[in-house]
Design a protein around this nucleic acid. Structure first.
Length: 371
DNA sequence: CTTAGGG
DNA sequence: CCCTAAG
């Protein structure tokens, strides 16, 4: 019995076998890794039969609502691997255990570009659950009415619907899409809210391990970033790229970044490099950095929608996915969506060869983490 | 125009 | 994220 309920899915093999379109043969006695690659191949295959996934998720196009299967599915998912978001996870708040969980959560989406959001949301929720009175939490949560980064879902017991619910069509179709356009408008609000939290971070005992925790994430992210920024030669340009990548939660995270980074850059440098990035974009085309000027962080919610879209239309139907799932997102062209999916696959593949096995879509394959 | 692949 | 070639 693993510490995170690894063995608590008695129905998993059956479900998965059915999900594999009949090839029950070897899915039972094999390791999770095999199942993972099966899943990956399945998702990568543009010609696969969507009905398999659709029926598995209870998300067939003829069945747009949350089916009972969907309900089971949502509730069946074990959130015990997640940090203490209240209610769902009654495990102790010991830092060791919490650290372990963060490690897992880190791996959950680290290479997926959306860690920022998870980090930010954890930052908020941990503050709430560990260090602030309940009323404070409620107050802070209520300040985030825009919820551009999905913090609402992640910051209280509503976390479960946030993750599992967003794979249900009825969820996003009624509320996610209209929110997409207002993300930029309210992002400042959230930033302010996070900034206000920052001052209170000083009294957080969690900050210590948060530092190392973020450091690890930062370093690992750096590798990903470096591949993206390979063509940038000067350290200045490289830095601007890195700082840009941390933009969405620059406020609260800056501190931890600076704590962890051995000899990196001050806040001013971070800010200036960021602004210079914009300037260099407008000023001159002295290098190739004039591309990617519209880069926008992918939110967890967006990734969820992407997975939803692929589950519904299949890999390769990028325009369909865009029209249905990202209709209100003016950015996120079909190509962007395709690129993101490509990156997700890449990240999941890389994670496979790390020290741990991570299911990129635990809510999809209902799979626990392997150690 | 959409998709795939490389940069 | 951008560019391009191929269907």
């Amino acid at each position: 019995m693993g510490p995170f309920g690894i063995d608590t899915t008695p129905d998993f093999s059956d479900t998965f076998a059915g999900f594999k379109s009949g090839s029950v043969d070897e899915s039972l006695g094999h390791s999770m890794e095999d199942k993972m690659s099966d899943m990956k191949h399945f998702l990568m295959d543009p010609n696969h039969d969507n009905t398999a996934v659709d029926s598995f998720l209870g998300l067939g196009m003829e069945n747009m609502g949350l089916s009972s299967k969907m309900e089971e599915f949502s509730h069946g998912f074990d959130f015990s691997f997640l940090p203490d978001y209240g209610g769902l996870n009654s495990c102790s708040t010991q830092d060791v255990e919490a650290g372990l969980k963060f490690e897992i959560l880190d791996g959950f989406l680290d290479g997926v570009d959306e860690v920022e959001d998870i980090y930010a949301s954890h930052d908020l929720s941990s503050i709430g659950n560990h260090f602030l009175p309940e009323t404070e939490v409620k107050k802070k949560v209520s300040e985030l009415d825009g919820d551009p980064y999905g913090l609402m879902n992640l910051s209280s017991e509503s976390f479960s619907p946030g993750i599992s619910g967003s794979i249900g069509l009825s969820e996003w179709s009624k509320e996610t899409v209209p929110h997409a356009e207002s993300q930029n408008v309210s992002s400042e609000k959230v930033k302010d809210s996070l900034d206000s939290n920052e001052s209170e971070d000083d009294k957080k005992p969690l900050s210590t391990f948060l530092g190392s925790w973020v450091k690890r994430g930062k370093n690992r992210k750096k590798n990903l970033i470096n591949t993206a920024c390979r063509r940038l030669d000067s350290s200045r340009e490289r830095m601007s790229c890195v700082s840009y990548d941390f933009r969405p939660r620059k406020g609260p995270m800056k501190k931890y970044i600076n704590i962890s980074a051995e000899n990196t850059f001050s806040d001013d440098q971070l800010a200036s490099s960021e602004s210079e990035d914009d300037i260099s974009v407008t000023k001159t085309s002295r290098n190739r950095s004039d591309r990617r000027k519209h880069q926008r962080m992918w939110t967890v919610d967006e990734v969820m929608k992407l997975v939803d879209g692929i589950a519904h239309f299949g890999v390769g139907k990028w325009t369909d996915i865009k029209n249905l799932f990202f209709h209100s997102a003016a950015h996120r062209t079909p190509v962007d969506i395709r690129d993101k999916w490509r990156n997700l696959l890449k990240a999941s593949y890389n994670d496979k060869h790390n020290y741990r096995e991570v299911c990129l879509f635990p809510f999809l394959c209902q799979q626990k983490f392997i150690f």
